[in-house]
């Protein structure tokens, strides 16, 4: 049982999560942003660690990753910054990033460090199920970290069941098969997909991500899932002047 599990036990709907890239737009504001988001009422956070070749990301997060790397962000520095995480932040925290930096850092060391600073879960979009089970899962389990799997409209029912079995906090439901930063797809097919997932009565709640950018798309997503994740739209805000002061207003504009 980690903070994520506690949250999902307590709150079943309208959960709002925000993604941002650590080290963007400035290298040392990782916890300041987290604090502002918690104060604004966000339920949990995804802190991205940058990678040079983020294939699942659109231009906005690509740009933030490039900038963060230029600013000197590394996993070592991020863990350094997160030392005081639990003195300042109480909501659940996920780290999100690609597998190669983790491989270089060392998976065992990565999971230990994450647990030590008070991280609750990890999202690695390019770490597939087979590799996770065969080589990675024991480190996640030993450190009480939830691994979050992605599901798309093309994921088979059999695979979704297996993902549900391997998950212990939530399932990251993609609004469509796309890279980050797109538009929320609303069509008959997509509604069918959400309904199909709902009807499967999975043990883990679903949170919808990719294409959630405003109150309208957030509200729509919450009709079908326990909540939604805003990424690129928030990263865009971080690219503007005085971003720390704008966070409260941004979150208010999304949450009805």
């Amino acid at each position: 049982m980690n903070r994520l599990n506690a949250l999902f036990n307590k709150k079943k709907d309208n959960l709002l999560s925000i993604y941002y890239t650590a080290g963007y737009p400035e290298v040392n504001t990782t916890l300041d942003i987290a604090e502002a988001l918690e104060r604004a009422g966000v339920d949990f956070l995804e802190i991205g660690f940058p990678y040079s070749d983020p294939v699942a990301d659109g231009p906005t997060i690509q740009h933030s990753s490039e900038k963060a790397l230029e600013n000197g962000m590394t996993l070592t520095l991020l863990f350094e910054q997160l030392k005081d995480l639990r003195k300042r932040i109480t909501i659940p925290i996920l780290l999100m990033g690609y597998v190669n930096p983790i491989v270089q850092y060392g998976i065992e060391r990565f999971c230990k460090q994450a647990a030590e600073v008070g991280v609750d879960g990890i999202i690695v979009p390019d770490l597939p199920m087979y590799e996770y089970e065969a080589m990675y899962s024991r480190y996640f389990i030993d450190n009480n970290l939830s691994n979050i799997f992605l599901v798309t409209p093309q994921t088979s029912e059999e695979r979704i069941r297996k993902i549900d079995e391997l998950s212990n906090s939530f399932i990251y439901l993609l609004s469509s098969s796309s890279i980050t930063g797109g538009q929320l797809q609303v069509s008959v097919n997509i509604e069918d997909y959400y309904k199909r997932i709902k009807a499967m009565q999975l043990k883990n709640p679903a949170i919808i991500g990719f294409g959630i950018s405003d109150d309208k798309s957030f509200k729509k997503a919450c009709e079908y899932a326990a909540g939604a994740i805003v990424g690129s739209a928030f990263v865009k805000l971080l690219g503007t002047e005085g971003y720390l002061e704008k966070i409260q207003g941004f979150v208010k504009s999304i949450r009805f």
Binding site: D126, P128, E131, T152, Q154, T155, S178
Partner: peptide, 20 residues
């Protein structure tokens, strides 16, 4: 049969590419 040559290979892809 898992897609490996010794220590190398595999399919480290995001879920979106899995069906393809």
């Amino acid at each position: 049969d898992k897609g490996y040559y010794g220590d190398f290979g595999g399919a480290y892809i995001p879920e979106m590419l899995y069906p393809n």
